[in-house]
């Protein structure tokens, strides 16, 4: 048996050597190649094909599951991606750590189509590093057959009437963030006392919570397993399509408004081609295809006009400025991150 394992490991070792050799020579060939690193299931794949065809640039397309995973890999420095699609606070962190190139906006003429509402935001105040790809909010999705009263405040998540019928996001930043919002604080606070207050609130809420979930929330809400859940707007659109009883609200206290934007990391060796790709993504037809496929909200104004009216007039996907006037964009917590983590562990180990 031992000999068998040795043979297998030898074989595997050889395999790795051969493959890594193949990959390195692949990069050295004449064809132009860019590497794109995006969220899972977050693009209409036909768009990549048409880009390759139009510009003769080969695209290596990889996917990540969350910002932190992407950050850890880029920070480790072994990967030479040309385009990334991180969220707001992660872009801030990466610019703070000098990990991103400034984008030459002369090469991105399609940037003019991006809604001015989404320019010069906190994570990129002078608009030097990022081009918005998708955006959305965090809110409450509820089942109108189980919740008869009007839903307009985060406070309903603390209503004992819905004991064991509430689903929270298993995400420290979002769950603590909405609690801070309910208490009237900023969801970027680093103030110990405010965070302590939010912690007490969440501990108080725990007996009412059915579960802290991630992607499962979609199945659970569609399957009528719970009365309400904290969700991202994009997921809400998907759920509402599957279950007509579901409704989505952005509570009046305000919420989190988020952006996934395209950036060029300093690991890139083909910044001009990366800009070509970013510009292509902002093309009206292409942005439309992506928004239609993913179901999230596009910041590209012309593409939005091509989408079906019932979607663009729905405030779930496209809330107007009044609906999100109290909402904030996440900022990088930097040194306060361990504090958030500790609070979250305390809540969950109660």
């Amino acid at each position: 048996m031992k000999r068998f394992f040795s043979a297998v490991s030898l074989f595997l070792a050889l395999l790795i050597i051969v493959f890594s050799a193949a990959i390195t020579t692949g990069c050295g060939s004449n064809g132009r190649t860019i590497k794109v690193y995006n969220w899972g299931d977050y693009i209409d794949k036909s768009v990549i094909k048409s880009f390759e065809k139009q510009y003769g640039i080969n695209v290596v397309y990889d996917e990540f599951a969350n910002n932190e995973e992407m950050y850890a890999k880029i920070k480790a420095g072994a990967l030479d991606y040309d385009v990334l699609v991180p969220s707001d606070y992660m872009i801030k962190r990466m610019t703070n750590e000098d990990m991103l190139y400034k984008i030459n906006f002369d090469n991105i003429p399609n940037y003019k189509y991006i809604d001015d509402r989404f320019k010069n935001l906190g994570y990129d105040p002078k608009n030097e590093y990022s081009v918005p790809y998708m955006w959305g909010t965090v809110g409450i999705v509820y089942n109108s057959t189980m919740v008869k009263e009007p839903v307009n405040s985060w406070k309903i998540l603390w209503n004992p009437k819905y004991k064991k019928q509430i689903l929270m996001l298993d995400s420290q930043r979002d769950s603590i963030g909405i609690t801070l919002k309910m208490l009237g604080y900023s969801l970027n606070t680093k103030d110990q006392k405010q965070l302590e207050e939010a912690k007490q609130k969440l501990i108080e809420q725990k007996p009412l919570v059915l579960a802290y979930v991630g992607d499962q929330v979609k199945d659970q809400m569609i399957g009528n397993q719970a009365a309400m859940a904290v969700v991202w707007s994009g997921d809400a659109i998907y759920m509402m399509r599957e279950n007509k009883d579901l409704k989505y609200v952005i509570p009046k206290e305000g919420s989190n408004i988020w952006f996934d934007s395209m950036v060029i990391p300093k690991t890139s060796k083909h910044t001009a081609d990366a800009e070509l790709f970013i510009n292509y993504m902002c093309d009206t037809q292409i942005a439309y295809k992506n928004a239609d496929y993913i179901g999230y909200s596009t910041p590209q104004t012309e593409a939005k006009k091509l989408l079906p009216k019932e979607l663009t007039s729905d405030k779930t996907a496209y809330p107007d400025e009044g609906d999100v006037k109290n909402s904030e964009v996440f900022e990088d917590l930097a040194d306060s991150l361990p504090l958030y983590d500790k609070i979250w562990t305390e809540i969950k180990s109660k």
Partner: peptide, 27 residues
């Protein structure tokens, strides 16, 4: 995480959280 609904942090969850979320590799 799946059957407990993330209500009770176990040691495995805590370690995973440090590497994927908090970036506190030391801890």
């Amino acid at each position: 995480e799946l059957l407990g609904g993330g209500q009770y942090t176990l040691i495995g969850n805590l370690i995973q959280q440090q590497f994927t979320l908090t970036m506190d590799w030391g801890f």
